[in-house]
């Protein structure tokens, strides 16, 4: 699954640690999400969407 998490984070001038703190996950998880190495659970995807004020499908897109 692709995502534009890095762009959204950088637009706000946040570091990965800043985003990790707000989502209450580890910095490694943010790194893995941004690199597309990890697909979040639905609750985490909703949390991310709420934080950025977007819909889940605006952030995550099916890679196929």
């Amino acid at each position: 699954m692709k995502n534009n998490l890095r762009d959204l984070r950088e637009e706000r001038g946040w570091t990965q640690a800043d985003l990790a703190l707000q989502l209450e996950v580890s910095r490694q998880t943010i790194n893995a999400l941004e690199a597309g190495r990890y697909d979040p659970s639905l609750p985490l995807a909703f949390k991310i969407a709420r934080l950025f004020g977007r819909r889940i499908e605006d952030i995550f897109t099916d890679a196929t």
């Binding site: 640690a17 703190l21 989502l23 209450e24 996950v25 580890s26 910095r27």
Partner: peptide
């Protein structure tokens, strides 16, 4: 917004 505080995990 860069913070030095760590996330809970």
């Amino acid at each position: 917004m860069s913070q030095t505080k760590l996330s809970p995990p």
